[in-house]
């Protein structure tokens, strides 16, 4: 079981309030991702849940029980750190055994769990090595192994993939997702990478300056972002924003249209523009277009497959009307 409830939780460092009071419930077995730009308070929020920082006010409940003043060790949560935080002087086996040793679990059970975890994580051959002799991906797996064996109520991940190179990151992402499918344990995962959030989460919590901007499933956020910040943060490439006349016509201050929801033609269309840069990836083509409707920023258009265009070509863009997002002067979504 691992249902975590935050009730009016806030955090201040001295006079600086980094997290104003917020409410959040994470259901048992849910994979929840905290996402936001750096400095948005997502890691602090995770550390509050872990108990590594005191909350300034409010209450944290784990499975209904008040955990606000419970020390981290007693909350039944396991954490995987950004730097992995492996104990360099211990072998992989001892690293994984450490939480069980602290909990006083008997040796036979310890060995059983270590073997199971090592098998699941492909670490069997490395049990007698030290962390210094392992690759980044292997260290990551040891850190996860150390978390698994505790059989925690919930796993907390603090940007666990940010120290890995791009190729490994995709692999580990899949492994963590699969781990969640298998264990069905609550997981809270902090990242600044919205792709990780979109691909892994059951529920995404978008944070900015300590405030929850929106909570919802990945597709919710993609299809119905509740404000301009979420609209711009979720989705890659970024949504195009257009202000002025075009927006006013639709009764909004700003309208947003995702690059994949614009069709492009060399002959006719709603908006005229010239190609700035064209990126040909084979599977798709990204075009960055200078247009009068968006004088301050280039518009990004994504086309499936190949589209031959070069710098300076004139093109016409047409947004798909039903995919246009409208935002008011306060940045909030208009239905």
């Amino acid at each position: 079981m691992g249902r975590i409830t935050l009730d009016k939780v806030s955090k201040s460092f001295g006079d600086v309030e980094v997290i104003p009071p917020l409410d959040l419930t994470i259901e048992d077995g849910e994979f929840t991702v905290f996402v936001g730009p750096s400095g948005c308070g997502k890691s602090t929020l995770l550390r509050l849940i872990a108990g590594l920082e005191d909350i300034t006010s409010g209450q944290i409940r784990i499975d209904g029980a008040d955990a606000t003043n419970v020390p981290p060790a007693k909350r039944g949560l396991a954490m995987v750190f950004q730097s992995y935080a492996l104990y360099p002087h211990m072998t992989v086996r001892k690293n994984i055994a450490f939480p069980m040793k602290m909990a006083g679990i008997d040796q036979a059970e310890q060995d059983r769990r270590i073997d199971a975890a090592a098998k699941a994580l492909n670490l069997t051959d490395y049990l007698d090595r030290r962390p210094g002799q392992l690759s980044g991906g292997q260290r990551q797996r040891v850190a996860i192994g150390r978390a698994i064996v505790r059989e925690p109520a919930a796993f907390l991940f603090d940007e666990p993939l940010s120290n890995l190179d791009a190729a490994l990151r995709v692999g580990m992402r899949l492994e963590i997702s699969e781990l969640h499918e298998r264990l069905k344990t609550t997981m809270i995962y902090v990242t600044h990478d919205q792709v990780e959030a979109m691909t892994m989460a059951d529920k995404i919590v978008v944070l900015q300056a300590g405030v929850i901007e929106q909570v919802g499933s990945p597709l919710d956020l993609y299809e119905r972002p509740c404000n301009k910040f979420v609209a711009g943060f979720i989705g890659s490439p970024k949504m195009n924003f257009i202000e002025g006349e075009e927006a006013a016509e639709l009764g909004a201050t700003t309208i947003g249209i995702r690059p994949e929801h614009i069709s492009i033609s060399t002959t006719e269309g709603q908006w005229k523009g010239t190609v700035g840069v064209a990126e040909h990836l084979g599977s798709d083509t990204f075009l960055y277009i200078h247009s009068d409707v968006s004088p301050s920023e280039t518009m990004t258009v994504r086309v499936d497959g190949e589209f031959s265009a070069r710098h300076g070509d004139t093109v016409y863009l047409t947004p798909r009307a039903e995919r246009i997002h409208k935002f008011g002067a306060d940045g909030l979504r208009i239905e």
Partner: peptide, 8 residues
């Protein structure tokens, strides 16, 4: 950065 407990 720490808890009240660790500070005391």
């Amino acid at each position: 950065m720490a808890t009240q407990h660790s500070r005391s």
